[in-house]
Nucleic acid binder design. Structure first.
Lengths: 107, 107
DNA sequence: CCCATAGTTCGGGATTTCGGAACTACTGAA
DNA sequence: TTCAGTAGTTCCGAAATCCCGAACTATGGG
């Protein structure tokens, strides 16, 4: 399997990050990956709140997060490990991710 | 003319703000309104960069910014005055708007 | 092999966005 | 008061995007 595309941190665009996180389900997925020590399988987040997410939708959510530069995905056997790129993104856009996650937590 | 709808600051949702600002043109419009002492006519931002924005599109951009709680619009004679709600939003979601605007400025 | 599991891709229906044209709201001048 | 001009909104069809079930691919264990 060919390795998945990940943008270099300097190619990461604010609009892509805002678009990715403007969906509360994606924001919740990203928050969970970031909190969970930066490693988790995709299907581990098969539901957000009480809402079940079909796996085709889930797959596209992960793709959007990945292409926005928010997560890094690599296959380990049959499952995927998802690492948060939180630290890299924070270095490039200081305060952005923490402010967004705080805003969701406060709402 | 009936007054335009504006959400109360406590009803403002992070996803609406992120969605509104995930479009670089809307982000540029918001930045301009915020910088320009919080007052400006809609048609004063008829272009962003070298890209002309048709007025029906401009109207919908302003509507999205307004309904997201980012700006306050009121008619004064034939034109509209747009005030940034930046301070209110910063109070509700500390650091959010400044981080977003900095990210755009840095990219 | 064959099966089970984890994700991806495909397809087409629902939703959203875009922008030109027509419309409304307001002002000032004749 | 009527007319003309300016500022924005609404309408509507085309284009783009989102959503999710079904089919498919990739991997590992019997």
């Amino acid at each position: 399997m060919r390795p998945l595309f990940h943008p270099a941190i300097e190619d990461v665009q604010p609009e892509a990050i805002l678009h990715a996180l403007s969906d509360p389900r994606r924001a919740a997925i990203f928050a969970r990956i970031t909190k969970a020590g930066c490693v988790e399988a995709c299907s581990a987040v098969s539901a957000v709140g009480d809402q079940v997410i079909p796996k085709s939708s889930l797959s596209s959510h992960f793709k959007i997060l990945r292409e926005a530069g928010l997560i890094r995905c690599e296959r380990h056997g049959v499952e995927m490990r998802n690492h948060s790129r939180c630290a890299e993104v924070e270095a490039r856009f200081p305060g952005l991710l923490s402010a967004i996650m705080n805003a969701y937590a406060a709402s």
